[in-house]
Amino acid sequence: MKSHFKTLILSLAITGFMVCNANSKKPNLNLVEVDKTFIHPNPNKQYIKVALLLDTSNSMDGLIDQAKAQLWDIVNELSYAKCRNEKPNLKIALYEYGNDRLNGDEGFIRQVLPFSDDLDDISKELFSLTTNGGNEYCGQVIQTSLNQLNWGNNPDDLKLIFIAGNEPFTQGHVNYKDAAVNANEKDVTINTIFCGNHNQGISTFWKDGAKLTNGDYMAINHNQRTVHIASPYDYEILILNQQLNKTYIGYGTKGRAKAAEQAMQDTNAISYGNANAVKRSVSKSSHFYKNSSWDLVDAVENEEVVIEDLKEEALPNELKGKSDAEIKAYVIKKKLERENIQKQIQELNTKRTKYISDNTKTKNNNGLENAMTKSIKEQAKKKQYTWD
């Protein structure tokens, strides 16, 4: 009887392992006991995990500028991805390396942000980066990101490293080949972006650094100015963005500060022009924009907060002294307002995208964005991800 039960459990485990990844390893047929890590606890929770490793030495001002100016293009492109008709979540981690201000004993490397789905935090940290001369240790920063970040073991997850810089890939005490071995063990693909001449990147081993994990090697002009194209729909989207911000209900210790940060990242986006601010507005209308740690609408929606359990001091001024029923009604009202505004932004963005496509004779070549989105799409196909 016991052997029959184990056989049944094994069959169920193998069935549960039939996931989106066409290249997943075959199940271990020697398994007879249930391993709780074998079946992903929630198969509909796929993640696109991107670790962005940026050289912040003196010559990289243009690269950092591109990262700031093109973040929302990248986020928006990823928001259209699907796996098994489910929309995956997005987590982005950020490292800087090659900056003399960083700790030399740690390889002039700093984890700026661990994997995060807080798009405002990601934008904030990108805008905090500054450059300074230094030593660029590519192998060590890759290995550090592999060691420090929680890559997980869901075979559906798309796990990618993008490292950008312009010094030889062989510098430092950690061999990039050893880091690549570890990346393969974790199912992480390393993509290299050389900031400079294509052939120079090959001769300094940037292409080899990508090849070892079947990643992509790319060379970009990191000093190229980002092009944002205006459309007749931009003004209306920006007005809707202002209305969207008013649907957020800050609560708890983070509420007020995070609402202010939301507005600050709007300001940072518009510093690269109205068209870039529009792209951030589009990102804020997508499923990637999550704020349950400080916004009551998202927190209730995700069942992370029970209104009856909230203390008076955690409530914003407009809800103090209100009954639970009144608070619930207010949250529902703001939720419906938000959904309506986000829908309008998405509809206008469809028209905006078509307008830009119809009125642009030459394809934009925004270096970092094009390099990343092209690689992500190609590598996502291996795991049967699709794009709307």
Rank of each mutant, 00 (worst) to 15 (best):
G252T: 08
T267R: 10
G107R: 02
I376N: 04
N291P: 00
L315R: 00
L52P: 00
L296A: 04
K2I: 14
P27M: 09
S231I: 06
L53M: 10
K68Y: 03
S24W: 06
Y272Q: 01
V297S: 03
N28A: 09
N317L: 13
I163N: 00
E337L: 14
I376M: 06
Q262G: 09
Y248F: 14
S116D: 08
W72Q: 06
Y235L: 08
F127A: 04
Q265K: 09
V282H: 03
Q224R: 12
A183R: 00
L71N: 02
F38M: 09
N276P: 03
D309A: 11
P27W: 02
L126W: 04
I341T: 07
N182T: 15
N99G: 07
N182C: 08
V188F: 04
F162L: 04
N317G: 10
I64H: 00
S292L: 08
W151L: 11
N103Y: 05
L63D: 01
K334C: 09
K363L: 09
Y289A: 08
I193H: 04
V227N: 02
W151T: 00
N30D: 13
L10I: 01
N21D: 14
K333W: 08
K351C: 06
Q224V: 00
I341S: 03
N214P: 05
N103K: 05
D208C: 02
D73I: 03
S271M: 10
I202H: 05
I202Q: 01
N245I: 08
K207W: 02
E185P: 00
E106N: 11
T204H: 06
N366W: 08
V174P: 04
L158R: 05
L296T: 05
E339N: 14
R256Q: 15
Q344Y: 11
Y248R: 13
E369D: 15
N276Q: 14
E301P: 00
R225A: 09
N340D: 08
T15G: 08
R101V: 10
S24R: 11
K207I: 05
P41K: 09
K351L: 13
V305Y: 02
I190V: 15
L71D: 00
V32F: 12
E369S: 15
L12S: 06
N166V: 04
L31Q: 11
K343P: 00
K383V: 07
K334L: 12
N150I: 12
C138H: 04
A275V: 08
H222E: 12
G133C: 06
D105A: 14
K91M: 09
E312K: 13
N199V: 05
A13Y: 03
V305T: 07
N166D: 15
V75R: 00
N364Q: 15
T189L: 07
T37G: 05
Q384F: 12
P43T: 09
A69I: 06
N268W: 11
W387D: 01
S293W: 03
A183H: 04
S203K: 09
L310P: 02
A275D: 08
A263S: 10
Y235V: 04
A299N: 06
N214M: 14
H228K: 08
I9V: 15
W294D: 01
Q346L: 14
S11I: 15
S271V: 04
C195D: 11
K361P: 01
I270P: 02
N103S: 11
A325R: 10
R338V: 02
T350H: 13
A51C: 10
